[in-house]
């Protein structure tokens, strides 16, 4: 564990808490892409298949359980209690391409051809693009609630900090995995436009609006 990874994990934790807070406080999931949330649920379930077979630490297990449970809870609540508060007509990104693309990528680029490793790799590639339906929806509506922008910033910062963590781990431990590094870079690049608007507007107290 190093400071980059710890802060990254805490940002990830914070992002989910901010999202839950947004939904509860505004009693609405408006502006949230259900498809992105569904993709994150698939990401965590496929990545943490080793939950019962591979012990790392209490911290690691607790975080895994939280990420699976919270993403499942959000998907469930968006389908049930908050079903009428968000508009599926705005959430039109074709996730079949992301699900299929990640499958192809994990079949071509992986380190071991085993059940757990293929699903782990699939989750890494899928996570890199899971935010696209959300960004696509925001580019269509041209704006986002401030709390939603904070949620997205924390979520984007988490993977960006993991990239820094991987560089740090390579320098200090010689630990290197190029698949998550590359996927993390892709995800951070996808966030670039969002980060720009977040820093230039939301951090200065203005509303998140696309130019």
């Amino acid at each position: 564990m190093n400071v980059f990874r710890l802060v990254a994990d805490l940002m990830h934790l914070a992002s989910i808490l901010i999202l839950l807070l947004k939904i509860r406080k505004t009693r609405s999931a408006a502006g949230i892409s259900f498809k992105s949330q569904l993709l994150y649920l698939i990401v965590f379930v496929t990545r943490y298949l080793d939950l019962f077979t591979h012990w790392v630490s209490l911290y690691n297990t607790a975080m895994k359980v939280f990420f699976i449970a919270s993403s499942g809870y959000i998907v469930y609540q968006m389908q049930r209690r908050y079903r009428a508060t968000w508009d599926p007509a705005l959430d039109t990104f074709r996730i079949e391409f992301l699900l299929g693309g990640a499958a192809v990528m994990s079949l071509i680029f992986h380190t071991k051809f085993t059940f757990l490793e293929l699903f782990w790799t699939y989750s890494i590639w899928l996570e890199a693009v899971a935010i696209l339906p959300q960004l696509f929806q925001m580019s269509r509506t041209g704006e986002a609630e401030t709390i939603t922008a904070h949620y997205l910033f924390a979520l984007g910062a988490y993977r960006g900090l993991y990239v820094v963590n991987w560089i740090y781990r390579y320098a200090t431990e010689g630990y290197w995995e190029w698949i998550p590094f590359l996927a993390g870079m892709v995800q951070t690049v996808l966030y670039a436009d969002f980060f720009y608007v977040y820093f230039s507007r939301v951090m200065r107290g203005k509303k998140f609006e696309l130019p």
Binding site: R5, D9, H12, D50, T53, H54, V56, N60, M63, K64, F67, T111, K112, T114, F115, L116, E117, W120, Y162, N165, P180
Partner: peptide
Amino acid sequence: AVEGATHDEL
């Protein structure tokens, strides 16, 4: 060891 499960990150 469990197959492929060497990942210690989240």
